[in-house]
């Protein structure tokens, strides 16, 4: 438990709180389906021997079952350097916020017996956790999320391509990022996912300090990923910056809608319950 840094507890609280406001059973669509036969090997439990097949073929086969969920979901979390930023000390970094949000979504999905996986990336794919529906899978997800540290640059397209390989069947992809990346390239990858029949949800994590420039004296702003700097007086550019951010948010929303992708802007000062509600709104 300590290894998870309390993320699982926090997440459970978030999810319980969220579910308390829902009116649907999280256990709908539960079933177990036969997957394939496999030749019996010593050590296999006798209860899984297909006796009918033995009678017909006189060979020992065991039934192999696959726990089937009604959804296979993949959480794709951006762990680039930019995600490690926060505009005020009293707020979580975007990465911490994204981790908690991803964990809450994962727990929610797992409680629904939906197989849930995790992909984290920065300038490359850092980890892939295959989707599993087992209840104990959450511990693995939570462990991976708790261990997330801000990385280097951002390269979402390879991570999303990896998701395609990980989700062979139609499923759900939750892309959690500050979207400080190449929009065209990212949208191309998202559209591809959508083309493959996946439901795609983009959660745009943004610190309020990114949405509006806080007033203050002239400052040299440095990009933690690229190291580029811009020197300006925030007060002078507040309006233009706000206009630019609005344009970016609008552009992401428009592009996503055009591709049948749900897009949600999630400021990091937004309560998690609200954020979950927006994310899971139909």
């Amino acid at each position: 438990m300590a290894r998870l840094g309390g993320l699982d507890v926090t997440t459970a609280g978030i999810v319980e709180g969220f579910l308390a406001g829902q009116h649907r059973s999280p256990r709908r669509g539960f079933s177990v389906e036969f997957a394939e036969h496999r030749a019996y090997q010593p050590g296999d439990e006798p209860r899984y021997i297909d006796w009918k097949l033995l009678a017909r073929t006189d060979r020992l086969h065991v039934k192999q079952y696959e726990e089937e969920t009604n959804l296979r979901a993949m959480l794709v979390v951006d762990a680039s350097a930019s995600m490690g930023w926060r505009g005020a000390p009293e707020r979580l970094t975007k990465l911490d916020y994204a981790a908690r949000l991803a964990a809450a979504l994962g727990l929610l999905l797992l409680r629904q017996r939906d197989a849930t996986g995790l992909v984290t990336f920065d300038d490359t794919v850092r980890s892939i956790t295959p989707a599993r529906a087992a209840g104990r899978h959450f511990a693995l997800l939570a462990e991976r999320l708790a261990a997330l540290q801000p990385g280097k640059g951002t390269a979402a397209a390879p991570a999303l391509t990896q998701v395609v390989a990980a989700l062979r069947r139609r499923g759900m992809v939750v892309f959690i990022s500050d979207l400080l990346l190449d929009r065209a390239l990212t949208m191309k990858a998202l559209r591809f996912l959508r083309h493959r029949g996946h439901e795609v949800l983009v959660l745009h994590i943004a610190d309020p300090g990114e949405l509006e420039l806080a007033p203050g004296e002239e400052t040299r702003f440095r990009d933690p990923e690229s190291g580029r700097t811009v020197t300006l007086a925030p007060a002078e550019w507040a309006t233009e910056y706000r206009r630019t951010v609005d344009g970016v948010v609008r552009a992401w929303g428009t592009a996503c809608r055009a591709a049948g992708i749900r897009y949600v802007l999630v400021p990091t000062d937004l309560p998690f319950g609200t954020a979950l509600g927006r994310a899971l709104a139909s």
Binding site: M83, L180, F221, E225, S226
Partner: peptide, 16 residues
């Protein structure tokens, strides 16, 4: 001027 890390650099660059 004082330096400050700011990830949304492309927004700033676009604005300016």
């Amino acid at each position: 001027p004082p330096e400050r890390a700011f990830p949304a650099m492309q927004y700033l660059e676009d604005a300016t």
